[in-house]
Design a protein around this nucleic acid. Sequence first.
DNA 1: CAGTATCCTCCGAGATACTG
DNA 2: CAGTATCTCGGAGGATACTG
Lengths: 141, 141
Amino acid sequence: MEDGTWKAPSYCTGTDDDVRQWDTREDCEVRQILDRIADKWSLLVIALLDRRTMRFTELRKEIDGVSQRMLTVTLRQLERDGLIKRTVYPVSPPRVDYELTALGNSLQEVTKALVVWTERHQQEISEARTEYDQREILPVS
Amino acid sequence: MEDGTWKAPSYCTGTDDDVRQWDTREDCEVRQILDRIADKWSLLVIALLDRRTMRFTELRKEIDGVSQRMLTVTLRQLERDGLIKRTVYPVSPPRVDYELTALGNSLQEVTKALVVWTERHQQEISEARTEYDQREILPVS
DNA sequence: CAGTATCCTCCGAGATACTG
DNA sequence: CAGTATCTCGGAGGATACTG
Protein backbone atom coordinates (compact mmCIF):
# COMPACT_ATOMS: atom_id res chain seq x y z
CA MET A 1 0.00 0.00 0.00
CA GLU A 2 2.59 2.53 1.07
CA ASP A 3 5.17 1.52 -1.51
CA GLY A 4 4.99 0.75 -5.16
CA THR A 5 6.10 -2.86 -4.97
CA TRP A 6 4.35 -5.44 -7.10
CA LYS A 7 1.68 -7.35 -5.24
CA ALA A 8 1.19 -10.95 -6.26
CA PRO A 9 -2.32 -11.84 -7.35
CA SER A 10 -4.24 -12.98 -4.30
CA TYR A 11 -5.75 -15.99 -6.01
CA CYS A 12 -2.45 -17.55 -6.98
CA THR A 13 -2.42 -19.63 -10.11
CA GLY A 14 0.39 -22.10 -9.70
CA THR A 15 0.01 -25.63 -10.93
CA ASP A 16 -3.57 -26.53 -11.62
CA ASP A 17 -3.81 -28.45 -8.37
CA ASP A 18 -2.67 -25.52 -6.35
CA VAL A 19 -5.18 -22.85 -7.24
CA ARG A 20 -6.26 -22.26 -3.69
CA GLN A 21 -4.07 -19.73 -1.95
CA TRP A 22 -6.23 -16.80 -0.96
CA ASP A 23 -5.61 -13.31 0.11
CA THR A 24 -8.38 -13.01 2.63
CA ARG A 25 -7.23 -9.74 4.16
CA GLU A 26 -10.13 -7.49 4.89
CA ASP A 27 -8.67 -4.58 2.99
CA CYS A 28 -7.59 -6.52 -0.09
CA GLU A 29 -9.04 -5.40 -3.37
CA VAL A 30 -10.69 -8.69 -4.22
CA ARG A 31 -12.67 -8.73 -1.00
CA GLN A 32 -13.80 -5.19 -1.66
CA ILE A 33 -14.89 -5.86 -5.22
CA LEU A 34 -16.58 -9.08 -4.19
CA ASP A 35 -18.49 -7.28 -1.48
CA ARG A 36 -19.67 -4.78 -4.03
CA ILE A 37 -20.75 -7.35 -6.60
CA ALA A 38 -22.39 -9.52 -4.01
CA ASP A 39 -24.53 -6.79 -2.53
CA LYS A 40 -28.27 -6.87 -2.41
CA TRP A 41 -29.05 -5.42 -5.85
CA SER A 42 -26.01 -5.48 -8.14
CA LEU A 43 -26.41 -9.08 -9.26
CA LEU A 44 -30.01 -8.43 -10.22
CA VAL A 45 -29.20 -5.31 -12.20
CA ILE A 46 -26.35 -6.97 -14.07
CA ALA A 47 -28.51 -9.97 -14.90
CA LEU A 48 -31.35 -7.81 -16.19
CA LEU A 49 -29.06 -5.77 -18.43
CA ASP A 50 -27.88 -8.87 -20.25
CA ARG A 51 -27.81 -7.85 -23.92
CA ARG A 52 -30.39 -5.19 -23.25
CA THR A 53 -30.59 -1.48 -22.74
CA MET A 54 -32.97 -0.43 -20.01
CA ARG A 55 -34.26 2.80 -18.58
CA PHE A 56 -34.38 3.66 -14.92
CA THR A 57 -38.07 3.05 -14.46
CA GLU A 58 -37.93 -0.20 -16.40
CA LEU A 59 -35.33 -1.54 -14.00
CA ARG A 60 -37.33 -0.29 -11.04
CA LYS A 61 -40.41 -2.09 -12.28
CA GLU A 62 -38.54 -5.34 -12.91
CA ILE A 63 -36.78 -5.53 -9.57
CA ASP A 64 -39.31 -6.21 -6.89
CA GLY A 65 -38.67 -4.38 -3.66
CA VAL A 66 -35.93 -2.00 -4.71
CA SER A 67 -36.34 1.57 -3.58
CA GLN A 68 -35.64 4.53 -5.82
CA ARG A 69 -32.68 5.49 -3.70
CA MET A 70 -31.06 2.07 -3.64
CA LEU A 71 -31.48 1.60 -7.37
CA THR A 72 -29.77 4.93 -7.95
CA VAL A 73 -26.97 4.11 -5.53
CA THR A 74 -26.45 0.68 -7.09
CA LEU A 75 -26.39 2.04 -10.62
CA ARG A 76 -23.89 4.73 -9.65
CA GLN A 77 -21.56 2.20 -8.08
CA LEU A 78 -21.74 -0.07 -11.09
CA GLU A 79 -21.07 2.88 -13.35
CA ARG A 80 -18.12 3.93 -11.21
CA ASP A 81 -16.70 0.43 -11.44
CA GLY A 82 -16.92 0.57 -15.22
CA LEU A 83 -19.50 -2.21 -15.40
CA ILE A 84 -22.39 -0.27 -16.87
CA LYS A 85 -22.68 2.71 -19.17
CA ARG A 86 -25.11 5.50 -18.40
CA THR A 87 -26.41 7.56 -21.29
CA VAL A 88 -28.38 10.74 -20.65
CA TYR A 89 -30.53 12.10 -23.45
CA PRO A 90 -31.07 15.84 -23.07
CA VAL A 91 -34.78 15.71 -23.72
CA SER A 92 -37.82 16.52 -21.68
CA PRO A 93 -38.93 14.47 -19.89
CA PRO A 94 -35.42 13.16 -19.30
CA ARG A 95 -34.39 9.80 -20.62
CA VAL A 96 -31.48 7.76 -19.27
CA ASP A 97 -30.37 4.46 -20.69
CA TYR A 98 -28.32 1.85 -18.92
CA GLU A 99 -26.38 -0.92 -20.58
CA LEU A 100 -23.49 -3.22 -19.78
CA THR A 101 -19.99 -2.31 -20.83
CA ALA A 102 -17.67 -4.96 -22.22
CA LEU A 103 -16.34 -5.43 -18.71
CA GLY A 104 -19.82 -5.65 -17.30
CA ASN A 105 -20.78 -8.19 -19.90
CA SER A 106 -17.85 -10.43 -19.06
CA LEU A 107 -18.91 -10.29 -15.42
CA GLN A 108 -22.48 -11.01 -16.40
CA GLU A 109 -21.43 -14.31 -17.91
CA VAL A 110 -19.92 -15.38 -14.62
CA THR A 111 -22.78 -14.24 -12.43
CA LYS A 112 -25.27 -15.86 -14.77
CA ALA A 113 -23.57 -19.15 -14.05
CA LEU A 114 -24.19 -18.50 -10.37
CA VAL A 115 -27.85 -17.80 -10.96
CA VAL A 116 -28.23 -20.86 -13.16
CA TRP A 117 -26.56 -22.96 -10.47
CA THR A 118 -29.01 -21.63 -7.92
CA GLU A 119 -31.93 -22.36 -10.19
CA ARG A 120 -30.73 -25.84 -10.80
CA HIS A 121 -30.11 -26.74 -7.18
CA GLN A 122 -32.79 -24.88 -5.28
CA GLN A 123 -34.71 -28.09 -4.83
CA GLU A 124 -31.74 -29.85 -3.25
CA ILE A 125 -31.11 -26.94 -0.92
CA SER A 126 -34.73 -26.82 0.04
CA GLU A 127 -34.68 -30.52 0.90
CA ALA A 128 -31.45 -30.21 2.85
CA ARG A 129 -33.01 -27.46 4.93
CA THR A 130 -36.07 -29.50 5.71
CA GLU A 131 -33.96 -32.44 6.76
CA TYR A 132 -31.70 -30.25 8.90
CA ASP A 133 -34.62 -28.60 10.62
CA GLN A 134 -36.19 -31.95 11.42
CA ARG A 135 -32.95 -33.15 12.99
CA GLU A 136 -33.08 -30.08 15.20
CA ILE A 137 -36.52 -30.93 16.46
CA LEU A 138 -35.54 -34.47 17.37
CA PRO A 139 -31.92 -34.36 18.55
CA VAL A 140 -32.33 -37.30 20.95
CA SER A 141 -32.80 -40.81 19.60
CA MET B 1 -46.92 -21.18 -1.96
CA GLU B 2 -50.34 -22.11 -0.69
CA ASP B 3 -51.07 -24.69 -3.34
CA GLY B 4 -49.05 -27.50 -4.79
CA THR B 5 -48.99 -26.24 -8.36
CA TRP B 6 -45.78 -26.51 -10.31
CA LYS B 7 -43.83 -23.28 -10.45
CA ALA B 8 -41.83 -22.69 -13.59
CA PRO B 9 -38.11 -22.15 -13.03
CA SER B 10 -37.50 -18.46 -12.47
CA TYR B 11 -34.55 -18.34 -14.78
CA CYS B 12 -36.37 -19.65 -17.83
CA THR B 13 -34.33 -21.62 -20.27
CA GLY B 14 -36.10 -21.29 -23.55
CA THR B 15 -34.17 -20.94 -26.76
CA ASP B 16 -30.55 -20.08 -26.16
CA ASP B 17 -31.18 -16.46 -27.10
CA ASP B 18 -33.90 -16.09 -24.57
CA VAL B 19 -32.23 -17.02 -21.34
CA ARG B 20 -33.09 -13.80 -19.65
CA GLN B 21 -36.49 -13.93 -18.06
CA TRP B 22 -36.09 -13.44 -14.34
CA ASP B 23 -38.20 -14.00 -11.37
CA THR B 24 -37.13 -11.01 -9.33
CA ARG B 25 -39.78 -11.27 -6.69
CA GLU B 26 -38.43 -10.53 -3.29
CA ASP B 27 -39.70 -13.77 -1.83
CA CYS B 28 -38.63 -16.06 -4.65
CA GLU B 29 -36.32 -18.88 -3.74
CA VAL B 30 -33.52 -17.85 -6.06
CA ARG B 31 -33.31 -14.41 -4.50
CA GLN B 32 -33.18 -15.97 -1.06
CA ILE B 33 -30.47 -18.46 -1.91
CA LEU B 34 -28.49 -15.82 -3.74
CA ASP B 35 -28.68 -13.52 -0.74
CA ARG B 36 -27.35 -16.31 1.41
CA ILE B 37 -24.49 -17.23 -0.88
CA ALA B 38 -23.57 -13.64 -1.49
CA ASP B 39 -23.31 -12.68 2.15
CA LYS B 40 -20.20 -11.35 3.75
CA TRP B 41 -18.49 -14.63 4.63
CA SER B 42 -20.02 -17.58 2.75
CA LEU B 43 -18.03 -17.10 -0.44
CA LEU B 44 -14.80 -17.03 1.52
CA VAL B 45 -15.61 -20.17 3.48
CA ILE B 46 -16.61 -22.08 0.37
CA ALA B 47 -13.49 -21.02 -1.46
CA LEU B 48 -11.23 -22.02 1.42
CA LEU B 49 -12.79 -25.46 1.72
CA ASP B 50 -11.97 -26.28 -1.87
CA ARG B 51 -10.75 -29.87 -1.77
CA ARG B 52 -9.72 -29.44 1.84
CA THR B 53 -10.99 -30.32 5.29
CA MET B 54 -10.55 -27.55 7.81
CA ARG B 55 -11.14 -27.09 11.48
CA PHE B 56 -12.95 -24.18 13.04
CA THR B 57 -9.87 -22.37 14.25
CA GLU B 58 -8.09 -22.90 10.97
CA LEU B 59 -10.89 -21.16 9.13
CA ARG B 60 -10.92 -18.40 11.71
CA LYS B 61 -7.21 -17.84 11.26
CA GLU B 62 -7.46 -17.77 7.46
CA ILE B 63 -10.34 -15.36 7.19
CA ASP B 64 -9.19 -11.98 8.29
CA GLY B 65 -11.75 -10.04 10.25
CA VAL B 66 -14.35 -12.71 10.88
CA SER B 67 -15.68 -12.90 14.43
CA GLN B 68 -16.21 -16.17 16.22
CA ARG B 69 -19.93 -15.64 16.18
CA MET B 70 -20.22 -14.83 12.48
CA LEU B 71 -18.07 -17.79 11.49
CA THR B 72 -20.31 -20.06 13.53
CA VAL B 73 -23.46 -18.55 12.06
CA THR B 74 -22.09 -18.81 8.53
CA LEU B 75 -21.02 -22.42 8.95
CA ARG B 76 -24.40 -23.37 10.40
CA GLN B 77 -26.24 -21.81 7.48
CA LEU B 78 -24.02 -23.54 4.95
CA GLU B 79 -24.51 -26.82 6.78
CA ARG B 80 -28.26 -26.31 6.82
CA ASP B 81 -28.24 -25.66 3.08
CA GLY B 82 -26.40 -28.92 2.55
CA LEU B 83 -23.28 -27.23 1.22
CA ILE B 84 -20.83 -28.28 3.89
CA LYS B 85 -20.53 -31.29 6.15
CA ARG B 86 -19.75 -30.87 9.83
CA THR B 87 -18.04 -33.71 11.63
CA VAL B 88 -17.71 -33.71 15.39
CA TYR B 89 -15.11 -35.97 16.99
CA PRO B 90 -16.04 -36.82 20.57
CA VAL B 91 -12.60 -36.14 21.98
CA SER B 92 -11.27 -33.64 24.46
CA PRO B 93 -10.46 -30.99 23.52
CA PRO B 94 -13.24 -31.10 20.93
CA ARG B 95 -12.42 -31.37 17.27
CA VAL B 96 -14.77 -30.39 14.47
CA ASP B 97 -13.98 -30.76 10.79
CA TYR B 98 -15.64 -28.94 7.96
CA GLU B 99 -15.65 -30.00 4.34
CA LEU B 100 -17.65 -29.38 1.21
CA THR B 101 -20.41 -31.76 0.23
CA ALA B 102 -20.86 -32.73 -3.41
CA LEU B 103 -23.41 -29.94 -3.69
CA GLY B 104 -21.04 -27.50 -2.02
CA ASN B 105 -18.27 -28.51 -4.35
CA SER B 106 -20.37 -27.90 -7.43
CA LEU B 107 -21.15 -24.43 -6.10
CA GLN B 108 -17.51 -23.86 -5.33
CA GLU B 109 -16.65 -24.26 -8.98
CA VAL B 110 -19.04 -21.50 -9.88
CA THR B 111 -17.99 -19.11 -7.15
CA LYS B 112 -14.35 -19.72 -7.94
CA ALA B 113 -15.03 -18.42 -11.41
CA LEU B 114 -16.35 -15.26 -9.82
CA VAL B 115 -13.26 -14.84 -7.69
CA VAL B 116 -10.99 -15.50 -10.64
CA TRP B 117 -12.90 -12.92 -12.64
CA THR B 118 -12.43 -10.40 -9.87
CA GLU B 119 -8.74 -11.17 -9.67
CA ARG B 120 -8.37 -10.78 -13.36
CA HIS B 121 -10.20 -7.50 -13.66
CA GLN B 122 -9.39 -5.68 -10.46
CA GLN B 123 -6.96 -3.46 -12.30
CA GLU B 124 -9.58 -2.40 -14.84
CA ILE B 125 -12.08 -1.67 -12.10
CA SER B 126 -9.52 0.30 -10.19
CA GLU B 127 -8.76 2.42 -13.24
CA ALA B 128 -12.43 2.94 -14.00
CA ARG B 129 -12.95 4.23 -10.48
CA THR B 130 -10.08 6.67 -10.73
CA GLU B 131 -11.36 7.99 -14.01
CA TYR B 132 -14.89 8.33 -12.67
CA ASP B 133 -13.74 10.14 -9.57
CA GLN B 134 -11.73 12.59 -11.62
CA ARG B 135 -14.73 13.36 -13.82
CA GLU B 136 -16.62 14.17 -10.65
CA ILE B 137 -14.04 16.71 -9.54
CA LEU B 138 -14.03 18.49 -12.88
CA PRO B 139 -17.57 18.30 -14.21
CA VAL B 140 -17.26 21.60 -16.11
CA SER B 141 -15.10 21.83 -19.20
C1' DC C 1 -38.87 10.70 -15.95
C1' DA C 2 -35.08 10.28 -13.30
C1' DG C 3 -33.43 11.46 -10.12
C1' DT C 4 -31.57 14.29 -5.25
C1' DA C 5 -32.05 15.35 -0.20
C1' DT C 6 -33.45 14.03 4.46
C1' DC C 7 -34.77 11.49 7.97
C1' DC C 8 -35.35 7.18 10.20
C1' DT C 9 -35.45 2.23 11.14
C1' DC C 10 -33.77 -2.19 11.81
C1' DC C 11 -30.75 -5.84 12.00
C1' DG C 12 -26.17 -7.74 10.46
C1' DA C 13 -22.32 -8.14 12.66
C1' DG C 14 -18.74 -7.00 16.29
C1' DA C 15 -17.30 -7.25 21.30
C1' DT C 16 -17.32 -9.56 25.37
C1' DA C 17 -18.09 -13.09 28.73
C1' DC C 18 -19.03 -17.68 29.73
C1' DT C 19 -18.93 -23.24 28.98
C1' DG C 20 -18.83 -28.57 27.84
C1' DC D 1 -11.08 -26.13 21.10
C1' DA D 2 -15.27 -24.89 19.56
C1' DG D 3 -18.48 -23.10 20.46
C1' DT D 4 -23.13 -20.42 23.03
C1' DA D 5 -25.43 -16.25 25.17
C1' DT D 6 -26.00 -11.23 25.50
C1' DC D 7 -25.47 -6.60 24.56
C1' DT D 8 -24.58 -3.09 21.52
C1' DC D 9 -24.04 -0.10 17.46
C1' DG D 10 -23.20 1.64 12.69
C1' DG D 11 -24.63 1.85 8.52
C1' DA D 12 -27.23 -0.44 4.72
C1' DG D 13 -31.31 0.36 3.12
C1' DG D 14 -36.45 2.12 3.27
C1' DA D 15 -39.98 6.10 3.24
C1' DT D 16 -41.08 10.41 1.98
C1' DA D 17 -40.80 14.94 -0.07
C1' DC D 18 -38.98 17.77 -3.45
C1' DT D 19 -36.89 19.15 -8.44
C1' DG D 20 -34.62 20.00 -13.27
